[in-house]
Amino acid sequence: MEEEDKSNYKSRNLKRCSDKIMKKSCSAPINNLDDGCLMHIFSFLSPIPDRYNTALVSHRWHYLACHPRMWLRVDRSVKDLSEPGVFPDISTAVSAARPGDTILIAAGGSHLASNIQIKKPLCLIGGGELPDETTLTCYRGSDSALEFLSTCKLTNLTVRAELGCCLLHRSGRLTIDGCILQCETNPLDYLSCPIVSTARSCKLITSPVKSNGDSVSVLQTRIEGGVKAVLTKGDLALQRVRVIYARTNVYFWFDVDHQ
């Protein structure tokens, strides 16, 4: 009985503390702002983890931080597809997205990604805690899972290609952060490559900022399979390579940029 009373006492204290925190957050001066102002502020936060954590503050903040204007969602488990901002597959979400949108891909299971062209600036994020919880699968017969013709970012995702390349970079600045790129091992693995860049910088770049051209940046990403990690054409070349071996995995940092 004493142990039960102690546990009940602790649970009551925890509830009081949580209620106090919620009251303080709700009475904070920032909550005097209207919804439009708060959403504008939230738009400057990185989707994960900052905007995700923001959604945990209160019901109002959850509604605003998860509003379709803030990011689109790909979730096959959602039955009511009439809900704004929710799509059954990646291709549909990419078509509906506006330049600068963030697409959150639900964790669990495998999402089909086959020759999906991305011609506008977008950010694709895996919804799991780890990249292997959100997998994009490209089946044999496709050139690539995702094809980039604009400045884009991929983070917290696993991209798996059976035969071909995981990511095909045509133009723009592509950033791959905290992902896993896998090419299936088979007798034709010399045809497989995690990253292929066909960008050619023959155009005149008047800006002195180097990053305005075509480039690929890889950060803390695991690469598996394929004879080569990167295949480039034009005058892009592999630069600034860093490798860290952590337990059973090897993580890479490198840039594909102009020589």
Score class of each variant (00 low, 15 high):
251 Y>V: 06
107 A>E: 07
41 I>M: 09
13 N>T: 10
145 A>F: 09
82 S>E: 06
151 T>A: 15
241 V>P: 00
23 K>T: 08
93 A>D: 00
155 T>G: 07
100 G>L: 03
177 D>M: 03
11 S>D: 08
141 G>F: 11
142 S>F: 12
132 D>Y: 15
169 H>V: 07
168 L>Q: 09
105 I>N: 01
187 P>N: 12
256 V>H: 01
186 N>W: 11
82 S>Y: 12
204 L>S: 07
199 A>E: 06
97 A>W: 01
194 P>H: 13
160 R>T: 15
139 Y>G: 08
159 V>G: 07
189 D>V: 09
104 L>E: 01
57 V>C: 10
114 S>A: 15
176 I>W: 06
4 E>F: 13
206 T>P: 00
179 C>K: 02
45 L>F: 03
210 K>S: 14
140 R>Q: 12
76 R>H: 12
214 D>Y: 11
58 S>P: 00
70 M>T: 02
178 G>P: 00
133 E>L: 13
258 H>K: 09
150 S>I: 03
243 V>R: 04
149 L>E: 09
82 S>G: 05
2 E>A: 15
178 G>D: 08
104 L>S: 03
63 Y>N: 07
96 A>G: 01
157 L>C: 08
115 N>Y: 05
70 M>S: 11
67 H>K: 06
7 S>N: 09
146 L>H: 04
195 I>S: 04
14 L>V: 05
8 N>P: 00
69 R>P: 00
